[in-house]
Every structure is written in C-alpha cells, then in structure tokens.
Amino acid sequence: MDYYNLARGLHILAVIAWMAGMLFLPRLFAYDAEQNAKPEPLRGEMQALLRLWQTRLLRIIINPAMILAFVFGGWLLWLRSGDGADWSFAHQPWMVTKLVGVFLLAGWHGFLAGQRKKIAAGTSKYSGRFWRMTNEIPFILAIVMVLSVTLEWAF
C-alpha cells in the first residue's frame, strides 16, 4: 500500500474540514456582534442560537479536524523523512514556510476559540466589521502553505 498518498489524502480532507470551520466561525461572530444593535427580544433568541452554533462548530468540527490535520501531517513528515532517517527537507524554505503557516493558523484557531468564550460571556470588544475583515486570514495562509508545498520552491 502507498502510505504516503494515503496520509496525504487524509491530511487534505482534515485540512478542508478545518479550513471550512475556520472560515465560517468568524462569520458567525460577525452575525453575533451585529445582534447588539437589535432590541432585546429579538437579540437574545438569535444570539443564543448563534452561540450554540459557534460552540458546536468549534467542538464538533474545527477542533477534531485540526487534531486530525496535525496527526496526518505528522505522519506525512515521518514518511517523507524515510521513517525518521533523513530530515533534510525540513530545512528547505518551502517546508519552513509551510510550518510557519501551520503555526500561524493554529494561533488564529486559538484566538478564535478564546473569542468564542468572550462572546459567550458578553465581553468581546470586536465588531461585526472586524470579523468580516479578518474572515479571510485562514484562506490567505492556506494559499501560501499550499503553494509552498506543491511548488517546493527555494531561494
């Protein structure tokens, strides 16, 4: 069996799920923030529903998908190294770029998870405009990471 292609396929599927959630969660935050301008009876019901969706999206899709992306990504690194024998590729500019992108995306994930708690507590300071403006951060990181890995560029 071709384990490298299996790991790569599973990694791509996990990343797709992770990215889908990471692109949708800020949109839910924007909708939630915009409810503050509405009168209480309407705002309370809609915010409760949005916050339920935020929690479920994070716990059921985004967190497990990130874990699987890391597991399958680690497996890919191990297979690429020849079962741990040659890690020279890890120092190449394309791989360093990919790993920095992964670190930044995981950091954004952590920021979003922390903000979900603040939104639930009613202490978030960010507006719907902020969430719309930052909504594409995961996609921009994905572009850089995918092109780095597929092109394996060097200086």
Rank of each mutant, 00 (worst) to 15 (best):
D2W: 03
Y3E: 12
N5T: 10
L6W: 06
A7Y: 09
L10G: 04
L10A: 12
H11T: 04
H11D: 01
A20H: 03
M22F: 01
L23S: 03
L25G: 01
L25D: 00
P26T: 04
A30Y: 01
Y31F: 15
D32C: 11
A33C: 10
A37I: 14
E40L: 15
P41T: 09
P41L: 12
L42D: 12
G44T: 15
E45A: 14
T55G: 10
T55L: 15
L58M: 08
L58E: 00
I60L: 15
I67W: 07
I67G: 08
F70P: 01
F72G: 01
L79Y: 05
R80A: 07
G84S: 11
A85K: 14
D86W: 09
W87I: 09
Q92Y: 11
P93V: 06
M95W: 09
L99R: 06
A106G: 12
A106H: 14
G107S: 15
F111E: 05
A113F: 02
G114L: 08
Q115I: 06
R116N: 11
K117V: 12
K125D: 14
S127Q: 06
R132H: 13
M133G: 09
I137F: 14
I143A: 05
V144A: 07
M145F: 05
T150P: 04
F155A: 10
F155V: 08
